[in-house]
Design a protein around this nucleic acid. Structure first.
Length: 112
RNA sequence: UGAGUCAGUCAGGCGGCCGCGUCGAGCCUCCGGGCUCGCCGAGGAACGUCCGGGCUCCGCAGGGCGGGGUGGUGGGUAACGCCCACCCGGGGUGACCCGCGGGACAGUGCCACAGAGAACAGACCGCCUUGGUCCUCGGACCGAGGUAAGGGUGAAACGGUGGUGUAAGAGACCACCAGCGUGCCGGGCGACCGGUGCGGCUAGGUAAACCCCACCCGGAGCAAGGCCAGACAGGGAGCGUCCGAGGGCUGCCCGCCCGAGCUCCCGGGUAGGCCGCUGGAGGCGUGCGGCAACGUACGUCGUAGAUGGAUGGCCGCCACUCGUGCGGGGGAGACCGCGCACGAGGACAGAACCCGGCGUACCGACUGACUCAUCCG
């Protein structure tokens, strides 16, 4: 995900689920382009440039391993300041938890 | 051997699995792109954005005022507020280090607290002369005057030491010293240094307070600037068309030039792509010139260019440092190497147009030169 408009759409319209180190926003894909679309938000509150880059790379790596489960959605992962301190495995567990919660909410709003 | 000073280099290595970006080649394509292979892919500070330049656009008709910056001297440089060498002052036994280092007899302002008195100062105690009163004949008290040698306060008290002098004192006078001004001789490109004569006997600090002097300075910045594609909807108010709005000379004035539109409010639209974009005052080596910064000739190397922003994620082994334990060795000893095992640690920090600096952050490792102390020969 690269366009500011896409970020805005996903964050505002999508369902949300948070953990201590991250927050995920999820929407069903409206225009069926190729592949999953994922964006990351790592603000200055997380840390300096080096810290932000490391956090972003770790999140990218984690999401990459889970891409098969995300073909039908737009996803934005937002890091909180706690993400800077979290170990890699812990970050993965939180991502899985948040994604599961968001999935449930997405299904229930979709049925409504 | 110990303690230290200066200069410089480095910023762990190898491998496995899974990945990312530019470029090149090939193949495929629904022309959006995709796949495979190959090359390359963060730093000494990439950081802060504090100076200086290149580059780009605007301006170039000048003059005056204003504003900003720099501040020992000489050199280096594209340039600098940087660097080198030297001078002066301060610190250190020393190698060396530190200095926001023009002017306080052009003028103005400010010097808290303490203290009697703080800028052409000041009699609180004290010292000295003298008038009066009392007196236990030591002196005490009240008054007039002299005095900056002594005490005490302070960051700073109107030169220091010794003498002459005096009622007591005082550069009042004398010698030497310090300091100021000025002349001469010698050295240095120069800042300045060394020597010597004369003068008046002495002059506080602060200019990162205003200010004065010398020198320097157009404005804005790669979101510069250019090209392509695409979207939309107008309405109102004010000023003005030679009775000159507004704009340029980027703060102001004069002056000059352009000149028919300009400003504000409400409403609406867009924020995509490409170029600029990396070879540059370039790195390294040797020779030559120079104390050095640096310059120069020849040879050689040539490889980041992202744009929600690539250069990584996880793991293993080895090396390094520290701690603990065990083993064994040298030495009289304090202690010093060596081997093995376990545990811990590896900093500061991420290019965004490009260079030259400065400043700041940082676990540490290594190299060279030099200084001081001690011991041995």
């Amino acid at each position: 995900m690269r366009r500011p408009a896409e970020f805005e759409h996903t964050v505002r319209r999508g369902v949300r689920a948070g953990r201590t180190a991250l927050v995920v926003h999820l929407t069903t894909r409206t225009d069926p382009g190729p592949g999953p679309v994922v964006g990351f938000v790592v603000s200055k509150a997380v840390g300096g440039a080096v810290t932000r880059n490391v956090v972003k790379r770790r999140l990218r790596e984690l999401v990459h391993a889970r891409l098969d489960a995300l073909v039908d959605v737009d996803l934005v992962v937002r890091a909180t300041p706690a993400a800077a301190e979290a170990p890699f495995l812990e970050l993965g567990a939180q991502l899985d938890g948040a994604l599961a919660t968001a999935r449930k909410r997405l299904v229930s709003t979709g049925e409504r």
